[in-house]
């Protein structure tokens, strides 16, 4: 085995990740090769130095904070799935659909409202004043009609 090949696998060997012939070949090479033996020693030293890197001082309890985010998460995923529904529709097509839908709903609502509130037998004549003829006598409306229209009649 060449030194270059051995040095590429020394770390795996030191980590006990090699078995059988591979492990034996590297082990016997290191014993007989000062360069590879030195490389193995340097790797071990580097490995030890890494342990000086401190871990966190304390591990905070993140359960409550995470659980409090789950409803937001559920709402966000609902909105996401809604947006996914509309994603395949290009913006101009979406706008056209919205306008057509709006016109249709508007037309339907308009018809329905005008039917509900129009008097049966009512006419579109702007001078149609039948409504005033039904005013109860001596009401304010009747008094108004009497004062204005009686006066007009007298003038004629």
């Amino acid at each position: 085995m060449k030194c270059n090949d051995v040095q590429q696998r020394i770390k795996a060997y030191l980590d006990n990740e090699l078995t059988g012939r591979d492990a034996e070949a590297i082990s016997s090479h290191i014993k007989s090769c000062s360069s590879c033996s030195q490389a193995a020693a340097l790797l071990s030293r580097t490995w030890d130095i890494l342990l000086e890197l401190p871990g966190p001082e304390t591990v905070p309890d993140l359960v409550p904070a995470t659980l409090s985010r789950i409803p937001e998460e559920a709402a966000a995923s609902f909105l996401q799935s809604l947006s996914r529904l509309f994603l395949p529709v290009p913006a101009p097509a979406f706008a056209a659909i919205a306008i057509v839908l709006g016109l249709f709903i508007g037309a339907r609502l308009g018809t329905s409202i005008s039917t509900r509130y129009s008097e049966p037998g009512a006419t579109e004549d702007p001078l149609y004043l039948e409504i005033f003829q039904e005013l109860p006598p001596e009401s304010i409306g009747d008094a108004y009609i009497q004062v204005n229209y009686s006066k007009g009649d007298e003038d004629k």
Binding site: P56, V59, L62, T66, R69
Partner: peptide, 24 residues
């Protein structure tokens, strides 16, 4: 998870946020 994230980024505050994101 927290230990791994902390060692990876080396910042306790950021690690807290990241661990929450990971559990979500």
């Amino acid at each position: 998870v927290y230990r791994t994230v902390y060692r990876f980024i080396g910042d306790a505050e950021a690690a807290r946020d990241m661990v929450q994101d990971i559990f979500l």
